[in-house]
């Protein structure tokens, strides 16, 4: 016997699926980004500006260093949380 809750779940999932399908159809084709000016700039200038052969690292640590700073903060917060919880358990 299906309840109201089940019908609501099916309707919700259907709506989500339809929206996901539409956004999947609208996505740009694989390998051809919409805005390629910045990509081309990084490809052209990464060796002269950062001196790194690895373009990904030059993006992660130089062009988008703030992103890495946030990532490091996330790791720091995770460690602090784990230590806070398990220190009480240790005693």
């Amino acid at each position: 016997m299906l309840t109201k809750r089940d019908y609501a779940a099916v309707a919700f999932l259907t709506i989500i699926t339809v929206f996901l399908m539409f956004s999947m159809l609208l996505i740009h084709p694989f390998g051809s980004p919409n805005a390629s000016a910045m990509d081309q700039y990084i490809i052209d200038n990464t060796v002269e500006e950062t001196g790194a052969n690895n373009g990904v690292t030059s993006v992660v640590f130089d062009y988008r260093g703030f992103d890495t700073l946030g990532e490091a903060t996330v790791l720091f917060t995770a460690v602090a949380g784990v230590i806070m919880i398990f220190r009480r358990l240790k005693k």
Partner: peptide
Amino acid sequence: NTGGTLPLMNFAV
């Protein structure tokens, strides 16, 4: 011996 600050930041991270 290239990369500027990138290797230093890699070591720190």
